[in-house]
Design a protein around this nucleic acid. Structure first.
Lengths: 229, 229
DNA sequence: CGTAACCTTGATTAAGATCAATTCTCGTGG
DNA sequence: CCACGAGAATTGATCTTAATCAAGGTTACG
């Protein structure tokens, strides 16, 4: 991976060219197709990843095959950083692997593996990158907090409404295009495809949205937002 | 708060006496009784907290009054650190408040408020504390991941079984004592008191546990563990 | 074209929430 | 020391949501 691409990755944005170059020399780049596994939660930890192109889902699976998507990782975002800090000396007990599974959900998804040991060394001498790591974790913690809030305090149709409202880049935007399949969306929203399908229809019947394949037009943003809360 | 007490707090464990003393001089100590609010998620952010004695619940409430407990904070643990890193320059947009509500759930709960600005200054010049902050976040992220996994992939009785199994300090321990009310436990497990009550009875009828008030004796740990997975 | 993955629709079922009514527990004041 | 009352916990009857089961329909791609 060229070091100027690394600059786009949030946690690396404060590094100088020297440091970037150093990193770019030790990372490993891999390409995956839709449906390919990047790692399982059962594997030993190797390091964290950067998604440099494509889309990655982070998900859990139960013994009877039910899936739940925890995160969707878009380009220039990192994933699987958590175990970096769990296997430090003095940090609790145990040897931790990946917290969940990761799968590419677009063809030609390119990910960059940053080996754990080297990165930790860099971290110890670089407060800036360390604070950025904290900021990244903070963002993710708030996201998970909100995700749990949605899952436990709202019914399915309110979760769907909330998802659509939040997919907008701005308050004015009235059309969104789903970046994932409806199967994956239902898994992310803690439901199943059948229920999602029915729910979208219901929101359409009530005049809040119009669904056309992957494109959803918001016909009454105020009502939709209010309904979702 | 005496600076030797601060040492027990994980993120401060690497600091020397000088630094600890500096912190202990600028913190504010407050005492709360059962049911007292420490902060609401609507308040402007002041800083993060240390629970120095007692028990604190971090929770969300929906408009129609449903509650869900995200975390239980025991003594010498910190909470509300997330917004520290969300209001940094260069870190996204917006001004973030507390991510959830906090309430004391034991009498004489003592909490220590660490003002945000001072702590951030300290962080910038101290990599050790910064890495510990990352480690604390990592631990919490894994916890939330697991919490979501439980909530979305398991039914109530499996969640209850899993909770009981995980409350044990060791594999040998066959008796646990609930540190919170069954009302709060049901809220943490994503259900309601009635259902929790029935579920405990069911697990008892199937010979896995014996319930006596707040004390739960595990009568068949193997079966209980297997059932929970 | 043909096949597989994706999506939708309908009928049925089951888990767990809600509603309603006791019972239990424990701290407080007479 | 006992009675009272409030909050906590339990129990029963009913209802609602969303999962499950089953069958088609649609889309995309080799």
């Amino acid at each position: 991976m060229a070091s100027d691409n690394l600059k786009k990755v949030y946690i690396f944005s404060g590094l100088d060219d020297n440091e970037l170059d150093k990193i770019s020399k030790i990372v490993k780049v891999k390409t995956f197709n839709k449906g390919d596994i990047i790692f399982f939660d059962t594997e030993p930890y190797k390091g964290f990843y950067i998604n440099s192109a494509g889309l990655v889902k982070i998900y859990k699976i139960s013994k009877d095959g039910k899936e739940h998507i925890l995160h969707l990782i878009t380009a220039n975002n990192t994933f699987a950083e958590v175990p970096l800090f769990e296997n430090l000396s003095g940090t609790l007990s145990g040897n931790f692997g990946y917290p969940a599974n990761a799968m590419a959900i677009e063809d030609n998804t390119r990910v960059v593996l940053v080996p754990a040991r080297l990165f930790l060394e860099m971290l110890e001498s670089n407060t800036k990158i360390c604070i950025k790591m904290c900021a990244g974790f903070a963002k993710r913690l708030r996201h998970l907090n909100n995700h749990i809030e949605e899952l436990t305090l709202k019914d399915v149709s309110r979760r769907v409404a909330g998802y659509i409202i939040n997919e907008r880049r701005s308050e004015e935007q009235n059309k969104i295009s789903l970046s994932i399949s409806k199967n994956d969306l239902s898994s992310y929203l803690g439901t199943i495809p059948e229920t999602l399908s029915r729910t979208l229809k219901k929101l359409q019947d009530e005049g809040m949205i119009e669904v056309d394949g992957k494109v959803i037009r918001i016909t009454d943003a105020v009502k939709l937002k209010q309904y979702s809360e």
